[in-house]
Design a protein around this nucleic acid. Structure first.
Lengths: 337, 337
DNA sequence: CTGAAAGCGCTTACAG
DNA sequence: CTGAAAGCGCTTACAG
């Protein structure tokens, strides 16, 4: 089981040509006569040749490996993003080295270092908050193209272009919807203080409320089901006037749904909830969950295309790209029957 | 931004030694005097040297890249597995190239081919059902160690060792629990007919029921929330006698929970539900979901260790490894207050 | 303990 | 259209 893999020299011998010719065939060069090409291909099949990209990469560039570094790969929003991105890359002939950093900037710097050693051609990174200079400094020194997605922590956007769904527009849409649906008091629930994404997802909420002359009420906290559940209880006990909530993300909203079920609070008529991201679960819960649809699958595919174009055509992405979002209204924010 | 990366030759020049010595330092060889080692390390830091694994791999073996091929990466069970595995590999100095195959055997063969070109040192594969020979044939020809996990589709287990949680034991535990809790009629819900995993998760159910002298009722179907939801309705309308269900997995069970909420069927006392896998959501729903805990995070870490040992020590994994499972009883299968 | 040389499997000019 | 030669950045014996 451990005999040596055939190389282009073996193929050349089998096909009766020089190894340069084999190399040209591999690279689909038009210089090779089609007969010769066929001969070479046949020889490759015959002896079971497999291309060695590492060796090729040593001479040329573009290893065809993309590093995908994600702050929380267990969160379904990021999972969907990473999966869609990986599949789109694969369709374009690229493989993805993926790593979860668990929101740990130190771990992030470490995995990025490892990926640089592995010779990735580009990075796509949804960064952890915290000490970012180790990570981006290393990428910069290695002169590897890198995009920040979903979150931007490194301010030099010309060097590390940023792309994300339009969070501000999404929170506007959701808040307008709640106000129009008759909510008297709308809370914003979840998301950690001081982070850009929280700020953006809150800002549309704040401006709509202020336009409507309504008072905001913000409960910041971890973006988890557990926090959402607890928040549902707190709102019911400490803020009886609140009859609607825009959540930082769907996990918080799903937690609130559980919390409301637990305290037997009717969601839809009595209390309205809108999530953010529109992960798959939203359509399957009872009641189903209204959410800001970020088309994260499409976003992933788009980022894949952007990065591949960057590598292949040299067309750098815009410094700050926002993709459109849309509100999906379901039972959690409307009267049903 | 595009100047050439420093190589060991540059380091050697800077440190005033030969490039062989630099190489020995890189490989932590004890042959190098510690003073020299320090000099070399200082030189590397000074000029910003980064190790090029692709080049190293050309001479030696073990690229330190592991291929992780997963049938459904969006499913939280597999996400948790892949993430835990990747993080454990990373801690051991390995990077993971990951790909989702979306249950498509053709796509699987394609990504496996790409990973072989990238020179992965081993595969860990949760295979799609269907035509497996293209995939495993290619791995065999390339002589790359490969483990099948969670599902076994290739029968030659000496060549492609298999590991999974003990599904049979889990379904026994769950069924015994339901019977002991007073269920009169227990259904098995979800899982596609004819697949090994379905068969195993059903077999413990069947044997316990037969020991208890109870009739089985099986509703096979996709392992999705949507199917579970529909099944909850069907059971309520067409099989009124059924007062408990063991689900193929947690997604089906979560769907049943939604379905029961929808038709206002009380889960816990009136109707008992147990899921399988114990994904994170189980503890957060209302009512919380009983489930067979597979410790998938621990399983992922264990597989990482197994494969690394295989590569580094040459200790091949057992042909068929089953890891223990445990039943977590929550509100969905007990009377609460 | 350290250095000079060959070679891993490719690609890239450069001749022909 | 095809071949001979050099080189990518490392590691590996082999001398010293």
């Amino acid at each position: 089981m451990t005999e040596r893999r055939p190389t282009i020299v073996d193929v050349a011998r089998e096909a009766g040509v020089s190894k340069s010719t084999v190399s040209l065939v591999l690279r689909n060069s038009p210089l090779v006569r089609s007969e010769t090409r066929a001969q070479v291909r046949a020889a490759m099949a015959e002896i079971g040749y497999v291309y060695n990209r590492a060796a090729a990469n040593l001479r040329s560039a573009n290893a065809g490996l993309i590093g995908l570094v994600i702050n929380d790969l267990r969160n379904p929003f990021f999972t969907e993003f990473a999966t869609s991105l990986q599949m789109a890359l694969s369709a374009r002939g690229y493989a993805a080295v993926m790593a979860n950093t668990d929101e740990d900037a130190r771990l992030q710097a470490q995995v990025v270092g490892a990926m640089i050693e592995h010779g990735v051609s580009a990075f796509i990174i949804s960064p952890a908050y915290g000490e970012e200079s180790a990570t981006f400094g290393a990428i910069e020194r290695a002169a590897i193209p890198a995009m920040q997605v979903l979150r931007g922590v490194e301010p030099r956007r010309e060097l590390f272009p940023f792309a994300a769904p339009d969070y501000v527009a999404g929170s506007r849409l959701a808040t307008e919807h709640l106000v129009r649906a008759g909510a008297r008091r709308v809370a914003f629930v979840g998301g950690l203080e001081g982070r850009d994404v929280t700020r953006e997802r809150m800002s549309g909420y704040r401006s709509v409320l202020s336009e409507a002359g309504m008072e905001p009420l913000v409960l910041t906290g971890r973006a988890s089901r557990a926090f959402g559940r607890e928040a549902a209880r707190r709102l019911a006990h400490e803020h009886r006037g609140v009859d609607a909530a825009l959540c930082f993300n769907d996990l918080v909203a799903l937690g609130m749904l559980s919390g409301c079920a637990e305290i037997d609070r009717d969601v839809g008529r009595e209390f309205k909830i809108v999530g953010f991201d529109d992960i798959e679960d939203c359509a399957q819960t009872w009641p189903s969950l209204s959410s800001v649809h970020c088309d994260i699958a499409g976003f992933g595919a788009r980022i894949a295309a952007t990065v591949v174009d960057w590598l292949e055509e040299g067309t750098a992405p815009p410094a700050d790209l926002r993709t459109p979002v849309e509100l999906i209204v379901r039972d959690s924010s409307r009267d049903r029957g």
